[in-house]
């Protein structure tokens, strides 16, 4: 299924775009700030819970797959290129200009941590793009920056089109005799290269066409008005509050150096006196919002009140 926004009857889909932006980007920001590997799995579980309870699991699947591939790639590459760390697990060959390729325990765990971080960021982007209407986001961004909103509108319009176009190109090239599904990974990768070229060219053409159509309808002439503005509702405050507390608490504590962690030269102990604070804060924030979304769907009284 295409990872595009579809209107659904969940609390997340009813939120003001600013609240939804805060909800989606909080896990991504936390993943970037937090240095301790202990907190990331919790963040990850919380985000997957949010995706599930917001009924966008199917739509997010391709983002999750992409995040997983990127995480695996980092996990595999980092130990080979990162030569820091004291505990050598594998002694590799000596390469000219590079030296010994030794795999250390620290580099391996750092790769796992960095991979998980990327996974959370990609998953958060998937959550954002499948729960916030691109029209609402465009209206919101256009208030601050017309250029970035144009870039976003183009990206939002292009992405689903690119997915469809990629499928079409693949079908046509299969019929032309391109053996895309045969051979080893390298052969398949090589066979796919012309497809990427074609897709890139088509996307450029399409981006130019959409930009032309937007220009022909007055986009970019200055201050816009919004036809149907989404107003802030009590539900926005109830969702934004725990997210703001989690975000502010983490930023404050991290700035004070309370959540710092070091992988090199040797692994530090991840558990310290501040760990319960961070774990508790993340768990509380996620659980509150997940429970709220879940209850909103099932409890008419709550729906009518907020």
């Amino acid at each position: 299924m295409l990872p595009v926004y579809r209107e659904k009857n969940t609390l997340v889909h009813r939120l003001h775009p600013l609240t939804a932006l805060l909800l989606s980007l909080t896990p991504a920001i936390l993943a970037l700030i937090l240095e301790n590997p202990l907190y990331l799995p919790l963040l990850c579980i919380g985000l997957l819970g949010l995706i599930g309870v917001s009924e966008v699991w199917d739509e997010c699947r391709s983002f999750l797959r992409l995040g997983l591939i990127m995480a695996m790639f980092i996990l595999l590459i980092n130990p080979l290129v990162n030569r820091q760390g004291e505990h050598i697990l594998v002694y590799g060959p000596h390469l000219p200009f590079w030296g010994n390729i030794n795999v250390t325990l620290e580099a391996l765990l750092y790769g796992l941590f960095a991979g998980l971080r990327v996974f959370v960021i990609v998953a958060a982007c998937g959550f954002l793009s499948t729960t916030v209407s691109p029209d609402d986001l465009l209206d919101l961004l256009a208030r601050f920056s017309l250029r970035s909103s144009l870039a976003m509108a183009l990206a939002v319009r292009l992405y689903p089109g690119m997915v469809v176009e990629a499928e079409r190109i693949k079908e046509v090239q299969l019929a032309r005799g391109e053996r895309l599904n045969e051979g080893k990974y390298w052969q398949r990768f090589k066979a796919h290269l012309p497809l990427w070229y074609s897709l890139f060219q088509s996307s450029l053409d399409r981006a130019a066409n959409i930009a032309e159509a937007m220009s022909a309808r007055g986009f970019g002439r200055g201050k816009r008005n919004v036809y149907k503005k989404k107003s802030f509702q009590p539900r926005d405050a109830i969702v934004a509050l725990p997210m703001t507390i989690v975000l502010a608490g983490t930023i404050a504590a991290s700035t004070a150096g309370l959540g710092s962690y070091s992988f090199f030269p040797s692994l530090a102990l991840p558990w310290n006196m501040w760990s319960p604070f961070f774990l508790g804060l993340i768990a509380w924030g996620n659980l509150t919002v997940i429970l709220l979304i879940w209850s909103w769907k099932r409890w008419h009284w709550l729906r009518s009140k907020i």
Binding site: D135, N209, A213, R217, K223, V226, K228
Partner: peptide, 26 residues
């Protein structure tokens, strides 16, 4: 090509797009 000129995601919003760009009253 209709695919290359529609900018928003719903019919109502699409018709309003040009009018919003001109900042007409709601």
């Amino acid at each position: 090509d209709p695919e290359d000129q529609l900018v928003t995601t719903t019919v109502e919003k699409e018709i309003a797009f040009g009018l919003e760009n001109f900042g007409l009253p709601s």
